[in-house]
């Protein structure tokens, strides 16, 4: 969706607005903010900055005195924060933003509480257990909260615990693949399932899922591990499994079908282009550069240019199609 600003720029570039009237036109088209908009902006800015300054002041003070604060005081403080945040959430039931912020703060304080617990009582727990427990405990709040940011936090926590788990153990698939690929497969499957669920629910059921940044992040979480798996199979000489390549091609086909035909989203398509370029360059690079040929470099250079230009052309075409 073109922003008012870019539309205005286009009008100027076509010469539709006389040069001497551009200043007035900016105001008429509401590109330049009027006094009311400025007032609101400065109001919010001062509020956020002042609030952040106070919050950071408190944190720095606590950090400075950390070693001198007693054990119970620390626990009491953090638990108090959690309770306060929940109370704030209940209080701000009508004000959407304040309520969301309060719930998010409560969730973060929950994590701080768990970390404090682990640090104080030296339970010997592994790092991944911290994140996993945190994710499980915050799940009810995410379900009640019903806004994308808190669910993305949950997804991030699960992803982190998966990564940390594989750093500690060999996983269930340890006998089939080595550590890294098992972790990548798990990440890919988890994030893809969530992406599918999210898009499906956003389309059929809940309006609050409609913000695009969240599924885009999930798509990144889905695409990056898969691309990495394919790169891994390219660069590892012992691997003869075609599974990553097959999964990758299937993923591309499905992404194309959904995000070109069903619910168009340029960001997803751009991400797919990036994945294709990366894999192609790696594939040809691996096979051509072994012999130290200068021609190989030239070919790769032209390949990147060609694929980059091709992607740009295609994406621009899709973009224009979406706008008309």
């Amino acid at each position: 969706m073109a922003s008012p600003r870019s539309q205005f720029i286009e009008l100027i570039e076509q010469g539709a607005i006389p040069v001497e009237k551009i200043g007035d036109a900016l105001k008429a088209a509401k590109i330049t903010p009027d006094a009311r908009a400025w007032r609101t902006f400065i109001d919010h800015l001062l509020l956020w900055l002042g609030g952040l300054a106070l919050a950071f002041a408190l944190m720095f003070f606590v950090a400075y005195n950390w070693n001198d604060i007693g054990r119970f005081a620390k626990f009491g403080a953090v638990e108090g924060l959690v309770v306060l945040a929940i109370v704030a959430y209940c209080r701000f039931a009508e004000h959407a933003v304040a309520g969301k912020v309060s719930l998010l703060v409560a969730t973060i304080c929950l994590g701080v509480l768990l970390a404090l617990f682990g640090q104080t009582y030296q339970t010997g727990a592994d790092p991944w257990q911290l994140f996993f427990t945190w994710a499980m405990l915050m799940l009810p709040w995410a379900i009640i909260g019903r806004f994308p940011a808190i669910w993305i936090l949950w997804v991030a926590l699960i992803n982190t615990s998966i990564v940390l788990y594989y750093q500690t153990f060999r996983g269930i698939f340890g006998f089939m693949y080595d550590d890294e690929t098992g972790m990548l497969w798990l990440l890919f499957i988890f994030n893809t399932l969530l992406l599918v669920a999210w898009e499906f629910l956003a389309a059929k059921a809940w309006q609050w899922l409609a913000e695009r940044w969240a599924p885009r992040l999930l798509a990144i979480g889905s695409g990056v591990p898969l691309t990495w798996l394919v790169l891994h199979s390219i660069f590892t000489h012992g691997e003869t499994s075609f599974l990553p390549g097959l999964a990758w091609v299937t993923w591309l086909a499905v992404m194309y079908f959904i995000y070109r035909r069903v619910t168009p989203d340029l960001f997803m398509l751009a991400g797919c282009c990036l994945s294709v370029i990366t894999v192609s360059i790696s594939f040809f690079g691996e096979h051509l550069l072994q012999r130290n040929s200068s021609g190989g470099f030239l070919f790769l250079s032209l390949l990147v240019i060609g694929m980059g230009a091709g992607s740009a052309f295609w994406l621009k075409t899709v973009h224009q199609e979406l706008q008309s």
Binding site: S3, Q7, L266, L315, Q320
Partner: peptide, 11 residues
């Protein structure tokens, strides 16, 4: 105006 615009930043 055709209502078309520049490509987004990620492109």
């Amino acid at each position: 105006a055709t209502g078309k615009s520049e490509s987004p930043w990620y492109v």
